[in-house]
Design a protein around this nucleic acid. Sequence first.
RNA 1: GGCGGCAUAGCCAAGUGGCCUAAGGCGACGGUUUGCAAAACCGUUAUUCGUGGGUUCAAAUCCCACUGCCGCCUCCA
Length: 502
Amino acid sequence: MAFRLYNTLTKQKENFEPVTPGKVGIYLCGPTVYKESHIGHVIGPVIFDALKKYLTYKGYQVKFVVNITDVDDKIINEAKRLGVPMKDLAEKLTAAYFDALDQLGVNSIDEFPRATEYIPKMIELIQRLAEKDAAYATETGDVYFDVTKCSNYGKLSHRKSDDQLEGSRELAGGGKRNAADFALWKAAGADEVGWDSPWSRGRPGWHIECSVMSMALLGETYDIHGGGMDLIFPHHENEIAQSETATCKPYVKYWLHNGLTRIQTKVAGGEWKNEKMSKSLGNIRPISELLEAYPPAVIRYFLLSTHYRRPIDFSDQALTDAQKGMMNIYRLLDRVNRLNGEDVYRYPCDVNSLTELAHTDEDHALREVLTAGQLKFLETLDDDFNTAGALAALHDLATAVNRYIDRRQLETKPDSDARTLALQAGRMITTLGRILGVFTEPLKSADSDDELTEKLMALLIDLRAQVRKDKNFALADAIRDKLTALGIALEDRPEGTIWVKM
RNA sequence: GGCGGCAUAGCCAAGUGGCCUAAGGCGACGGUUUGCAAAACCGUUAUUCGUGGGUUCAAAUCCCACUGCCGCCUCCA
């Protein structure tokens, strides 16, 4: 089956065919760094990081760019409020953003261009527009894009600008030819950061940096541009207008928009409702807070467990449930590791060995389930990158492997080939998971255990084994119950007792 | 006021014309296993997909109306 993606531009799923065969360029709108990043800022990176990994798996050579908007009115105002230079504020917040991405396993982004590094190129683009009379300067030194010079303005958001303007928009700035015209360049106040330009000492408008940086790094026509649904209008609409008017070429082939993160907010009257998380609504949950409360792998899994175009509601309940579900697979992976004294994460599944190792009917049945699961996983992703469906396929596989280990009683009967088959089956799960950046390594808990804890737990388990041997079950159970109260679960398994933190 | 999206079990969530008497997860309830647990496995938990019409041999999936929620039109990932 061909890989299909939903394109906001055409409002339908389309077969994916890159502009240049074999190569894919992806640009994702990154943060404006004026306040700490919240959960909504990482959903795009996680989704598109997974998408790049999938495209790479499919054999494409992918270049993935995420911008950092480090000059903007909001940053200037926030820096003023804090009494720090704009640059320092932007750098500090950018570093925090990078740290969050790193923790979430977002490691496939090739370039993070910063707006301040592309000012000359922005001025160039504005000049190109001015030559075509699509950009005009006002008396105050601001420069606007004239939307009437773009014949298909509104093609992405599917709205006609005339319909929108009835009493809704203030003509901020003044001097505009049309109400829908947007700023390409803004004159700076005396005490504000600014760059010299033919029109005024000033700074770029909001949309220009994405057009310039994406085209500089990916070409004037590239494959995929992503962002949150809230960016469709005006941001992406304006990007298209200014880019295509300047180049007379199609700007982007596939526009992908992810659903917004919602969170419960208490509204006037004391009721709760789910609404978009955004800085201006004041209901943000910083990503740093979340990364302390949950293992980053859980957040990544949670974000991928809903189709990317749907809004996703964040709550502790939802994250806890996701973690529990995810643990099922981690437990299975631990189980095959114990069985083989091997690392299931380290090597990919050796598909040929599945056939070589299969002897009994049970073995062959497992092999068939694995093949079917792999197919389901990949086919599901091919249909508009349905990560939720793909993760379901991994759960099916985990259940099948658990069942296999149970039926073949591998924990009590040493059957080397069967155990290896179970290991390879586990590796099928990690191999597929790796395509989305999940189940790539053992789950790290928020607080790691030190060596002393390990030794003390070994000691307790040893003592408890002794009293169990003596049939002193009351004492053995007391030890277990008290550990449970401390958040530690003991599991008496055929090969011995293991402990896990709950 | 204009434009758009969504509505699937107790909860989360796939599926968007026939393989659906609808994946997967959480929760719940039985059973196997266990000294007892935990974990794992097996089984049960939506004849039905917001409501009402319509199209079709066939609809959760298409069309119309209605209701509710969300988003955009001003900064937003």
